[in-house]
């Protein structure tokens, strides 16, 4: 049995818009990935789940304007817990001005509302950092 890419998908905090995150999850499943859907979560819980699921990718979805605070927090906590090699992606409505800061904080890529999901699939394949995922 070959290695599957494991993705942890979470809605950040109180943001209520679940449809996009679920549609992306289903399309990543169609691309052969195993997606754990976490629902609405705060950074601490996302980290715990990422550890227990040994996630290769953490997807954070937000349209609620909380990205600037919560996104970098997820990256920081992952690094603290020895999971710095996890690919952290964000999707949703995120102002362009905030993107440099997010990238600098370690968010690998930010996907806006008109992203084709194939772009996300391609990005994941091209950028998986975890050594175990490459085998």
């Amino acid at each position: 049995m070959s290695r599957k890419i494991k993705v942890l998908m979470a809605k950040l905090g109180l943001d209520i818009h679940w449809r996009g995150a679920v549609a992306v999850s289903r399309m990543l499943r169609d691309a052969g990935m195993e997606v754990v859907y976490l629902g609405n979560q705060f950074p601490e819980e996302i980290i715990n789940a990422a550890i227990q699921e040994d996630a290769d990718v953490v997807g954070l979805s937000t349209l609620g304007g909380n990205h600037a605070v919560l996104g970098p927090k997820v990256v920081r906590l992952l690094r603290e817990k020895g999971m710095g090699d996890v690919l952290v992606l964000m999707g949703g409505v995120i102002p362009r001005d905030d993107m440099p800061a997010l990238k600098k904080a370690g968010i690998a890529e930010v996907f806006g509302p008109e992203t084709q999901i194939q772009e996300i699939v391609d990005f994941i394949h091209a950028n998986l950092k975890k050594a175990s995922a490459a085998s």
């Binding site: 109180l14 943001d15 609620g64 304007g65």
Partner: peptide, 21 residues
């Protein structure tokens, strides 16, 4: 959002969303 979903402004869930939108 915290008010809509029933959280006070000082609850941890509200962080970053108080008075926005």
């Amino acid at each position: 959002l915290p008010t809509v979903r029933g959280y006070d402004s000082d609850s941890p869930e509200a962080e970053g969303n108080v008075g926005a939108c």
